[in-house]
Design a protein around this nucleic acid. Sequence first.
DNA 1: AATATAAGTTAGTTTGTTATCACTAACAAG
DNA 2: CTTGTTAGTGATAACAAACTAACTTATATT
Lengths: 197, 197
Amino acid sequence: MSGRQTAEDRKAQIVAVVLQIADEIGPDRLSTTDVARAIGISQPAIFRHFPTKSALWLAVAESVSERLQRDWAAAEAEASGAHPRLKALIMAQLSAIAKTPALPSLLFSRELQVENMALRDVFHRLLGAFQSRLIEAIRDGQATGDICETVSPEDVASLLTSLVQGVAIRWTLGARSFSLVHEGLRLFDVQIALLRR
Amino acid sequence: MSGRQTAEDRKAQIVAVVLQIADEIGPDRLSTTDVARAIGISQPAIFRHFPTKSALWLAVAESVSERLQRDWAAAEAEASGAHPRLKALIMAQLSAIAKTPALPSLLFSRELQVENMALRDVFHRLLGAFQSRLIEAIRDGQATGDICETVSPEDVASLLTSLVQGVAIRWTLGARSFSLVHEGLRLFDVQIALLRR
DNA sequence: AATATAAGTTAGTTTGTTATCACTAACAAG
DNA sequence: CTTGTTAGTGATAACAAACTAACTTATATT
């Protein structure tokens, strides 16, 4: 189709296609043949760009990680005040999942993490980073009186990440028949109202 | 090891071993050879008891489904009052996950998500049944004044199931370094306190 | 225009997976 | 003690997986 490409472009394309197919057929049963066919190159061509399949997964994980962290930073930069910042973070996460629906299964998928320790580390650090951003924003919210101080910031962060993961699970199991971002933000508002006092 | 067994016993054993290995190596990486080896029978023997691997997965799902529903019923039977009933339900679910840790990953397995529609149905109905029990208890709680009425019972149920799923995810990703039931119930108390006000 | 480099291909090898088939052996009942 | 039933086996078909080797061709540089 697209003819011969530079290694950099091809690598990026392969990573993107992996994420797309991972959503369609599941991260674990995704074969290099599937990826190659979707792109329109031969299967061994994959191995010209990534030494092993594990290396390919690691590249996917790092790509996801970078994109998410950019999204979070952008969300926080655009919002001012604790509550808007918190909401922007949650929305960024919901949007990211909606745009890359393979994410929950990837984040969760034990098979990848059982086989690929490095991958597990990348995602673990990623979740931790999100939690930290939340905690920071929550602490600010408590300082300004936006959020009641009877609950620890860590617990509030746990409740909020759970909210995102929970709605994402219902979204995937329910054949994605509702708007993830919409429903997620609605529940966020409900939860925040409770936290307000 | 155990010699020749009745079909019924062997089936139950296979189902149990599938759940155990699914936890160790992931539901989608699990092969019939793995199962057979863990039991100590030949690989083709699996197919004497289940016509296909899909049928085996379905049996696993139904076994899980029955056990969970029994657990929920028992939990509700032993508790009186809306709040204790709610807490008992959450605890039953947390205990079930702790006892069958493959459960969360099963929700995201490709077997369930893509391959096996029947499986998906079983789990979808199962989650719905849990949600219904929660909603019922929440409604009672609101009637008796235990839970504030500014939030819809459906939303509260969503927040609570999310809580369970969220803490389960952190538990599995974090190498199960804390007590799932303990931490889950702690967060439940936090959330209920917010709902009480 | 010649040439080096790197992207890509065709044709394998090896290993693992589900499933089938013909057969064996344990067990219960007559 | 025979006999029908059924759990279990060994061999293997059929196929899909990751990866390799040897060859080909596009592209940039000199």
